[in-house]
Design a protein around this nucleic acid. Sequence first.
DNA 1: ATTTTTGCAAACCATTTGCAGCTGG
DNA 2: CCAGCTGCAAATGGTTTGCAAAAAT
Lengths: 168, 168
Amino acid sequence: MGEHLSKTAPLEPLSVSDSPERKFGEFLEIRGEKLTEPRRVLVRHIFDAHKHFDADELAAELQAAGRRVSRATIYRTLRLLVDAGLLRELRLTNRTAYEHDYGYPSHDHLHCSRCNKIVEFRDDSIRRICDQISRDNGFRATGRRLVIEGVCAECSKARPPKRMLDLI
Amino acid sequence: MGEHLSKTAPLEPLSVSDSPERKFGEFLEIRGEKLTEPRRVLVRHIFDAHKHFDADELAAELQAAGRRVSRATIYRTLRLLVDAGLLRELRLTNRTAYEHDYGYPSHDHLHCSRCNKIVEFRDDSIRRICDQISRDNGFRATGRRLVIEGVCAECSKARPPKRMLDLI
DNA sequence: ATTTTTGCAAACCATTTGCAGCTGG
DNA sequence: CCAGCTGCAAATGGTTTGCAAAAAT
């Protein structure tokens, strides 16, 4: 599948004091675990470019860059990075996509179901509404995922909506 | 006390003219496909109770009811029901969960990450905001998925949030 | 009769895991 | 040194698919 979960609307990065690598190191230290070379390679590569990615793309990119890390380690490290609050998971298709959480403002997504493009947007009123709803239901909210599914402008133009002919 | 906080007003079913079975039949007819016995068993069972479910639970329930349908057919039919607009997919965990779409108002979800409970809620202002955002980005929206992740009142009480001790 | 569907079993494929050797602190 | 890590390869587990027999129109 040639899915590219890459296209991103520009949101301004937050200014954060620690580098992702350092923050990861602190997290690992608390848990008595180690910031090893493969983990350093991963966290650096991941935060080198701000985009959505999945385990497969990561493996391919590192391979191409002559910094191969085994799939097992990639999966294990991705989980750690999520636990550390550096990455967030997006389950839009059968494979899990990831995006930066640390150093990036909370936001939501538009997902084009034709070309798989993901566009980020930010809307504070949604956050406020979600906070209120969580309170109303006695939930201690830890996060939210809002994905608006649809067809982007380009795909709409390329392949206009179903006409009767399509149904015959 | 926490009782009425965590309680959610059950959403009223919409009044729809056709039964799910009939709507499914029409959908299949348009595509030149057939409403067979296993498909009837499935659509009836699924719309018999309003709840979230996955392919596995469905297989077990039908088995127990002496109406066994093969897993292959279950998966194939679930896809058809989604295409027909009768069901909606929820990808909260590794397995795909489904919920009624037809005859049920659009709504969103609170998901307890401890016990996996799913609570539905409805909020019109979110729909309006999403419509506006779609327009702003040139998307033709076909739907949305908003999941607030958190810990429900019961689980919060049972296992209070991490204290320092937990980190040592 | 022809087309579609079913069930089985095998295939798939993203992700996880057991294990032996390696590494960081 | 020693707990924790890595890579490999094998296992997992949800989901899909090829195929021959069965059912629907």
